Amino acid sequence: MKNWIVAFRLRTLPLALASIGMGAFLAGASGNFDALVFGLCALTTIFLQVLSNLANDYGDSIHGADSTERQGPSRAVQSGAITKAQMKRAILIFVLLSLASGIALIYVAFGWMSFNFNLFLGIGALAILAAITYTAGYKPYGYAGLGDISVLIFFGFVAVMGSAFLYEQSLNWNYLLPAISVGFFSVAVLNVNNIRDIESDEKAGKRSIPVRLGRDAAVRYHWFLLFSGFAAALVYVALNYVAVTQFLFVLSLPLLLVNARAVHSKRNAAELDPFLKQMALSTLLFVVLFGLGSLL
């Protein structure tokens, strides 16, 4: 069980919950929050995130990114703690769990077999496919350097605007800026991971953004993600200003600066690794502060 808990990579869950949390806060500020929808949304998000982590463990092991030369934490399949066959079965289980939870979610939100039901069923299927094919499959898109755009789409636009749609049942384009904030911060988490693994990824043929750009340019890219994500939130509040409490999220800025400085200065993988979790938790804190500021 300990090996499976490690393979689930629970430290990635705050980031996934931050994404759907932003949608819930936005809906709450408009008076459309629903506790049951939120609970099912959170459960579905957790299943999808664990599915993605297991598929990533399996995919990187069979494609060579999780080799003995990798400097980050060892993975379950690569280390032999979990066999490939066991991991494939676990992936299937979490596909089924994600489907079951997702169908229950969209049924509660929209009823049975409506247009919105079918639309979100399709989006859910794409989310499952994206989770699996990031590093698994014949031509994983993560090895082509497309992981960043996928994270922006699914952790930003789909998670924030899609989850808000579940409550409000209408598409609010005004939420695009908060979605960009969470999306860019989520990409920043992936960027820390890819900077940490830049050497082993390059040897394995994984053409992540840091591998393509080089470390120095990847650090500048990281600054861009953090600055742009924070700026998007400022613009959103400026356009929708009601009270000064809406700027409560500014209190998260020091943590973002700490992360940016660490990515710039820490070149050892072991020293950089804790800042994956730090960036994920900083994103969650940003969302909580942003949401509370909107509700107060």
Rank of each mutant, 00 (worst) to 15 (best):
F25P: 06
G72L: 01
I180Y: 02
F286K: 02
A144P: 00
A217L: 14
F120N: 11
G137I: 12
V187Y: 01
G156D: 05
L253E: 01
F115S: 14
M1R: 11
M113V: 15
F47V: 06
E271G: 00
S74K: 13
S98H: 10
F185Q: 02
A29N: 08
L284W: 01
Y167G: 03
S19F: 08
L36G: 09
L99D: 05
V151E: 08
Y143W: 12
V189Y: 00
G23P: 06
E271H: 08
S19A: 15
Y107M: 13
G142Y: 07
G145F: 09
F247Y: 15
A100E: 09
G122P: 10
S208Q: 00
L248Y: 03
S181W: 04
K266D: 05
A109F: 09
F120I: 11
W223G: 12
F120T: 12
A164H: 13
L92P: 08
A81E: 10
R89P: 03
G122K: 04
S19T: 15
I132E: 11
V258M: 06
S208K: 05
L292N: 00
G21M: 12
I195P: 02
S101L: 11
L126D: 07
L54K: 09
V187R: 03
K139R: 15
A85R: 14
S282Q: 01
L97S: 09
R261E: 14
N56W: 05
R215M: 01
F47K: 02
Q169H: 13
H222N: 11
V235R: 02
K277H: 05
A130M: 14
S114A: 10
T135S: 15
L48C: 10
A125H: 04
A217C: 00
Y143E: 11
L276M: 07
A231Q: 00
F110H: 07
F47Y: 10
P140N: 09
N3P: 00
F185W: 01
Y167P: 02
F185R: 03
N32G: 03
M161Q: 09
N259K: 00
A127D: 08
N32W: 06
G59V: 09
G28P: 02
V192M: 03
F115E: 11
A270V: 07
S52Q: 11
A35G: 08
I103T: 14
V50C: 06
L43I: 14
A27D: 08
T133I: 07
H63P: 04
L251R: 08
D273Y: 00
Q169A: 13
H63F: 09
G31I: 12
G39T: 11
S30H: 09
S74G: 12
F94C: 14
L281N: 11
F227E: 02
A81R: 13
A159L: 02
P14F: 06
I91H: 07
A232L: 05
